[in-house]
Write a protein that binds this DNA or RNA. Structure first.
Length: 439
DNA sequence: TCTGGGGTCCTAGGACCC
DNA sequence: TCTGGGGTCCTAGGACCC
């Protein structure tokens, strides 16, 4: 007998206008690592890199958190807090694989699904009462199924809005379920710090503190107009958020299908800052290739190419140019990025990070002259072949960066601190010959 | 605390056009 | 010669999220 029919415990009768689940995997990267190496269980484990590298913690096991280690913390700091922790680089491909497994389970519960990131998702469970019973029971079933099918722990937040579901899954951790009944939103949120609201980060939290606002409940004390003047569009939505409403900001209420990305980028931070032009341009070539490859995988073309440079003092600039014609060709992306680099890098200046971003993406490349079009198609085919080779034999098989002179090749490896194993098979040109940094 | 890499969204100013 | 008001595109920077 379905809920709606049952009346007394039906969806509307019990006050649920919408039923939203937010599912968040617990210590996802670390948990996946534990599946492949059970001896890690219970130990302080940090995923993100070695303890003496530049970088930050991507994920920390609960044992590691006891030492004060948390994600986004510099690896070196984590090392100081717990030198005997196990530091792992991690395996992105495994996380993607398990993310797909999680997704498959969730899809079997509700087709209205949105993966918000690799390890979390929103489900619209409205109207599933006949299948799974009331929301809390459905949440238990889902929690159990994920555990059974993936051997991973997760936490589930259940509420009438995305916002409250998201905050609830946080309150449910670890490995729990937290449900907020309709009408209880404001009361539940009131005692939490404003920083628990997704989108309220360090800066906004500090500004709010200056206004005497520390907790979500305090937001009721302040005039919405003041919030709007002070924080713009986002401030205006804050009042509603305190009441648990979705409206406003990027935290939209609809749970939609995953859309095409708006930008594609790759960047690299050197383990040691460098002012060597050849190294910088070789890395830039590699970043450009990776961007191009991703665009081709997605079937997209970019109109804007952006260079990113960060210096020793951590100050960062971006410089962009919009092209006449969209592209997804390594050579063109690289040439554009290199031109921006040469215009904006002062020789001698040490660089900490260099990156390339492509945006203004579209499936079509726009109108090309016929001859250009044919040339582009041939290049595309060559690059697709190169992409397959790389997928099969490794990143260095075919590459602008690798096709530079031998000394550059080593430098690329050194600079990217490629674990010493510079196994570069016969480099083979895939694209235009004039793409090298010395052309 | 010496600060990754992949993204999204917002703001603000200037150019340019009607 | 003291000079409008929008709309759109582009660029740069920054907050924020996982």
């Amino acid at each position: 007998m379905g809920e709606a029919e049952a009346g007394s415990r039906g969806t509307s009768a019990s006050g649920w206008r919408r039923v939203i689940f937010h599912v968040d995997m617990d210590a996802f990267f670390v948990s996946v690592e534990e599946l492949f190496d059970p001896t890690l269980k219970g130990k302080p484990v940090v995923v993100g890199g070695k303890g003496d590298e530049r970088g930050v913690v991507s994920a920390a096991s609960y044992a590691a958190r006891k030492y004060g280690i948390h994600s986004a913390m510099p690896l070196r700091t984590a090392y100081q807090k717990c030198p005997h922790a196990i530091f792992l680089d991690g395996h992105r491909d495994r996380y993607s694989e398990y993310s797909r497994k999680v997704r498959a389970v969730l899809e079997s519960f509700s087709p209205v699904l949105e993966m918000a990131s690799i390890d979390e998702a929103y489900l619209d469970m409205t109207g599933t009462g006949r299948l799974y019973g009331p929301p809390l029971r459905a949440a238990h079933l889902l929690h159990e199924r994920i555990g059974k099918e993936t051997r991973l722990n997760c936490s589930v937040g259940v509420a009438g809005s995305r916002l409250v579901a998201k905050i609830s899954s946080d309150l449910a951790k670890p490995n729990g379920i937290f449900l907020v009944l309709p009408g209880q939103e404001a009361a539940t949120l009131a005692s939490l710090e404003v920083g628990r609201i997704p989108g309220v980060g360090k800066v906004m939290q500090e500004s709010l503190r200056e206004l005497g606002i520390r907790r979500v409940g305090d937001l009721r004390l302040v005039d919405e107009d003041l919030l709007r003047r002070r924080f713009g569009k986002w401030g205006m939505a804050l009042g509603g958020k305190a009441r648990g409403e979705d409206a406003g900001g990027w935290f939209d209420s609809s749970i939609g299908a995953d859309e095409d990305p708006k930008s594609v980028s790759h960047e690299h931070t050197f383990n040691q800052d460098t002012a060597d032009a050849a190294t910088l341009e070789a890395i830039l070539a590699r970043m450009a290739e990776m961007v191009g490859r991703r665009l081709r995988e997605l079937g997209l073309h970019a109109r804007t190419i952006q260079l990113k440079l960060r210096d020793q003092r951590f100050s960062t600039i971006t410089r962009a140019r919009t092209l006449e014609q969209r592209t997804n060709l390594d050579v063109e992306i690289f040439q554009e990025a290199r031109a921006l680099f040469r215009q904006n890098w002062k020789p001698g200046t040490k660089v900490r990070l260099i990156g390339v971003q492509a945006s203004s993406l579209d499936a079509s490349e726009g109108q090309l002259a016929l001859l250009d079009h044919q040339r582009h198609q041939r290049l595309q085919q060559a690059l697709s072949a190169a992409d397959k080779l790389r997928a099969k034999y490794g990143e260095d098989t075919v590459s602008l960066a690798a096709s530079m002179k031998g000394r550059f090749r080593e430098r690329v490896h050194d600079a990217m601190q490629g674990s010493g194993s510079a196994s570069t098979p016969s480099p083979q040109r895939a694209a235009d010959a004039d793409a090298g940094p010395e052309s």
